[in-house]
């Protein structure tokens, strides 16, 4: 590139008026070529900027991050039972047992003679049409529930994708 053009571009850069493309051109120019003497003092600046663009995290960063994420998962809380809480539990079980025994004996005393059972035969499906109607209603209900599940899964996948691109 012409020296004069470069000097003009440099002036524009230091005035803060260059575009991203022109700034890229400057870095490329000083990276590739040995600059003429009048421009040599700027070479270290653009070489530094180009070097910094290549700087990145070490190869084991992802592994360390995964370890940290695993550690950050909430652990199940282990609780030790004290002697007092054992007494409370036994007392509660006794009260419950007594209550059930009382309810059973009272029920037995009050129970009337057995009533005739329900005649289920009148609820039975009699025709093919009725059976078809019942089955379609049941299937429709099941499929609407399934659709609900799918849309929830799609929504969750979208969220994960959004987060996932940061972990690449």
């Amino acid at each position: 590139m012409d020296n004069q053009v470069m000097e003009q571009l440099l002036d524009k850069y230091f005035e803060g008026e260059t575009s991203l493309k022109e700034e890229h051109q400057l870095r490329e120019y000083f990276q590739r070529e040995e600059a003429p003497e009048s421009l040599q003092l700027y070479q270290p600046l653009f070489r530094h900027l180009a070097q910094e663009q290549k700087r990145g995290l070490g190869a084991d960063f992802d592994r360390k991050l995964l370890q940290q994420l695993e550690q950050a998962q909430p652990q199940a809380r282990v609780r030790r039972l004290t002697a007092r809480s054992w007494v409370v539990r036994i007392a509660a079980a006794l009260v419950l047992g007594l209550g059930l025994w009382w309810a059973y004996t009272t029920q037995e005393a009050l129970q009337k003679p057995q009533q005739a059972g329900i005649d289920w035969s009148k609820y039975e499906v009699q025709s093919t049409e009725a059976a078809f109607r019942l089955t379609s209603t049941a299937l429709l209900k099941a499929s609407s529930e399934l659709n609900h599940g799918t849309s929830t899964a799609v929504r969750e996948m979208d969220k994960l994708k959004k987060v996932g691109k940061f972990f690449k």
Binding site: F61, A72, K159, L160, K162, V163, F166, F167
Partner: peptide, 29 residues
């Protein structure tokens, strides 16, 4: 600097459910 990035990524992971409310995730990070 590495610790800072690690902390930021952990925060992103913890807040993954509310990511929809953040308009520009990159700028937020």
């Amino acid at each position: 600097a590495e610790d800072v990035v690690q902390e930021v990524f952990i925060k992103v992971w913890e807040q993954r459910d509310s990511m929809d409310e953040i308009q520009n995730i990159e700028a937020w990070c």
